[in-house]
Design a protein around this nucleic acid. Sequence first.
DNA 1: ATAGGGATATGC
DNA 2: GCATATCCCTAT
Length: 418
Amino acid sequence: IFDHGLCDSKTEVMEKWVAEFFLRRQQNPRVYGSPLLSALTPVDSDDCVKLKITAVLRDISNSLIRGTVDEGMLDILEILEKLMLQERSVIMGSLKSAYCWTAAECTLRFMWPVTVSDGFFGDALERIWKKRIGMLKGRESDLVSHELLKWESDLNEAFEEPEIYRKIRETNIRYNAISHLSQLVKEQWALLGCSSLESEARKRLLKRKDSRNRGNGFGRAGDNIDNIGVRREGRNGSSRENDNDVEEVGGVEKHDGADKVNEQEQEHEPSLNKGDITVARELKDFLLEIQRLIDASTRQGQEPDDAMEQSNDVTPQHDEANRTEAEDSEGTSSSRRVRPHLPTPEPLNVSPLKKVRLERPRPRRPMKFWTPEEVAALREGVKEFGKSWKDVKNSNPVVLADRSEVDLKDKWRNLFGR
DNA sequence: ATAGGGATATGC
DNA sequence: GCATATCCCTAT
């Protein structure tokens, strides 16, 4: 930072980088995007939009981890849409679908009573579909998709027709909402690419390499460098969820064997490699230390520490790694790494010698003939999605509520097959 | 997840 | 008994 003469705004830059670091850490569902951002000094530059998107994605991920899909999620999705508009990028299909199914799920929550009149379904329709989505329509938002309009009409119908109400009530909307949201998050993380810290590290690494090469008389063309940087950013960014950033800085050179241009050069410069890894490791230790402090101050009165450690981190490997490194940085200054101890896995019972059926065969589901309406829905669906029965069912979940994907396939077979 | 074979229900 | 529709099981 100092080298780049950014002293004036150095706090801001630092804050942004640290914020970005925390927001991108997957194993940390205790960091909340919007509060973290609002705690920072307000800056409104272009890269700030990127940071805001990162914060929004963190919030969505957190909600998904907790398993909550509520109207707060709709708020977040609307914010994401606005941010995308600011970035002048297109509103993607995944965002539209996610919004649509989330809205449906939010309405479904109020359909727990058996009949319409007993509950708050009417209120939900009013609040979510009339007011909220009415606003979207008002500003001609791209979030208003065909899918969304279809749901709107289906739900309005359900208000009048008890039969349709029942069918929607029994549809597993939640599953669809969650998968669309996951898909959205995945796409967006990929689109964001690598973190500021990481791209800065790459820039400086390449710069150093370049100056060395010139000294050695290799003389790689200068324009090469930018190309390499850009290309890598794209590729890495799209193939990755969000990992620990610092680790990546250290690993930039290590797990990068695919890039032929650099492969040979690396072997000639082991010292550069080593230095960078050391710096990255130190930085990581510092950040872990900071995080440990934050955790200690936010976790008061929530749960006993031990339980926290185990329940919050998703994978046991990460858990172990974090703990040992944290101990290193606070305890003795030796760089000795403690081997993780993992429990011996339970042996799986996979003997193929005998396949016994423990459960008695299930009673056959009562037969129901296909109504012309259902057949029409099936035809429409196949016209649009082909033989992707999952999509066909989703294209009209209300009419096809009583039919499984296999049923659709079977019906199509006896309509046109063989 | 999907395709195909097969079992069971329905209608004549 | 036969044809057709629906539902179930399982290999890919």
